[in-house]
Amino acid sequence: MKFTAVISTLLVASAAAFAPATTERASTSLSMDRRAAMGAIAAAGVVALPQMASADGAISKATVQRSRYNYGSRIMDLKDAVAAGDFGAVAAEKNAFILFNSGAYPGAKNKGKKAAAIAGTNAIFAAIRSKDKGALKSAFDAYVNENGIASLAASVDSTKGQGYSTDFDYRVRTKQAAIYVR
C-alpha cells in the first residue's frame, strides 16, 4: 500500500514538472527571412563538420623509397624484354612507369625531375608505337640512367638472413621478402 502511494506521488510530481505552462505561449515563428535562415544553417553546418581530409600524397622518405623500390624493380625486370625487343611485355608494364614517376618524384620541388621522367616514359612508348627496337633500347637505357634505377639482389635466403620485419616494410611481397623463422 505504501509502495503504490509513493509511486502515484512520483507520477503526479513528474507530470506536473513536464506539463506545459498555462500562461502565455511562446511564438514558434522565425523572425528572419528564408535567405538569412539558410545562411545561418549553412554556417552552422560548416562549423559542425570535422575538417575535411587533405590528402597530400603522404610525401615522406619512406613512400619515395617504397615507390622507387617496388616500381623500379618492375621496370628493371623489363631489361631482358627490351633487349629482345618484346614490345608487348614493356607495354604491359605501363603502370609501373606511371606509378614510378608519380611516387619517386612527389611534390612541387620535384616538378622538373618528374617532367623529365614523364618525357622519358613518353619516349619509350613512342618507340613501342613505332615498333623500333633500337629506339626502345636507347630510350629505356636513358630512362634507367636518368632516374637512377638499379638492379636489386635476386632474392634473400631466409636461412641466411631476414629481408623485412613488418608488413609496413617496402620489401613485403617482393622477391626480397624473407623472414627468418626458427
Rank of each mutant, 00 (worst) to 15 (best):
K2H: 09
T4S: 15
T4A: 12
A5V: 06
A5D: 00
V6M: 01
L10M: 05
V12L: 07
A16S: 06
T22I: 03
T22Y: 10
T23Y: 09
E24C: 02
E24T: 11
A26E: 06
S27T: 07
S27F: 09
T28M: 14
T28F: 11
T28C: 12
T28L: 14
L30C: 09
S31T: 11
A37Q: 00
G39V: 06
A43Q: 13
A44G: 09
G45D: 00
G45Q: 01
V47R: 07
A48L: 08
L49S: 15
L49V: 07
Q51A: 15
G57H: 13
G57V: 02
I59F: 13
A62W: 02
T63Y: 11
V64D: 01
Q65V: 10
Q65T: 15
Q65A: 15
R66T: 12
S67P: 00
S67K: 10
R68A: 09
N70A: 13
N70D: 06
Y71R: 14
G72A: 01
G72H: 03
S73C: 05
S73D: 02
S73E: 08
R74Q: 13
R74A: 14
D80G: 13
A81Y: 00
V82H: 02
A83Y: 03
G85M: 05
G85L: 01
D86W: 01
A92R: 10
A92N: 13
E93P: 02
A96R: 10
I98V: 09
L99Y: 10
L99I: 04
L99S: 12
F100D: 01
S102Y: 13
S102M: 08
P106G: 15
G107N: 12
G107P: 04
N110H: 07
G112I: 11
K113E: 08
K114Q: 13
A115K: 05
I118D: 10
A119M: 00
A119Y: 00
A119P: 00
G120N: 09
I124S: 13
I124H: 06
F125L: 09
A126T: 07
I128E: 01
I128K: 03
S130M: 05
K133R: 15
L136F: 04
A139G: 04
D141V: 02
S151L: 11
S155V: 07
K160W: 04
Y164T: 14
S165N: 12
Y170D: 09
R171G: 07
R171W: 10
R173W: 08
A177C: 08
I179Q: 13
I179R: 14
I179D: 08
Y180R: 15
R182V: 12
R182M: 04
